[in-house]
Design a binder for these strands. Structure first.
Lengths: 106, 106
DNA sequence: CGTATTGCTACAGTAATTGTAGCAAGGAAG
DNA sequence: CTTCCTTGCTACAATTACTGTAGCAATACG
């Protein structure tokens, strides 16, 4: 079969291509779920935890920090996490997934 | 703050809602990446490994098995992993992500 | 036979996640 | 000011997931 990619691929998903960084970020446990749960309204950290099946606060906090640094999520002044404009935009991208999942059933 | 989510949210990602199962599956390391790398053409297990920054074959094999059971990926007779019709459909859902990532930059 | 693919597995070391507990800060009574 | 309650957030050991390296059986080609 064809000779493959001896090109200097650096390890880690940060090869400079934004899509890789994005896939890497989204491909972490609870990241997609968090975005999904925030899709409609902001939630407090505890409410988010409840929505995410009581996931460990350690990892939720880690994800929220990552998502904030990425500019997808923000912490409101009155408390509670919500999507930024960018985050809402990203979430829109995932909406078709809902319908797909229904057809897919499992 | 307002009382939240007293609605009967059940624990576990398998609450019967397909979207949860899907988010759970896609939210595992390398899953999104694998689908992404297979988006255009089938790849052999080794070529896929190369495309995925030499990710460990252990976890790649695990993901491929999961994706096959989900019906998104299949192993061709002549060797090589490729997307099923369903998998291609799922991948289409993610295409807008590419453009989004470019705008997002990082 | 030797070489070189394929898909796939073993296994020890390391990193990520879980589960539980608890902190400091702030608000609202009492 | 004290008590109660909620907020965002952290510590830390136990457990699970993943990595990195090596290698196997099967298949094919010379």
């Amino acid at each position: 079969m064809a000779k493959q990619a001896a090109s200097g691929k650096v390890r880690g998903s940060r090869t400079g291509r934004p899509i890789m960084a994005l896939l890497d970020l989204l491909g972490r446990r609870w990241t997609l779920r968090i975005l999904w749960e925030l899709r409609e309204e902001p939630l407090t950290s505890r409410a988010l935890r409840t929505a995410c099946d009581e996931a460990s606060p350690t990892v939720l906090q880690a994800r929220l920090t990552e998502l904030r640094e990425a500019g997808f999520v923000e912490l409101g002044e009155g408390g509670g996490y919500g999507l930024t404009a960018l985050g809402r935009e990203l979430c829109e991208t995932f909406m078709p997934l809902h319908r797909f999942a229904e057809r897919w059933k499992k």
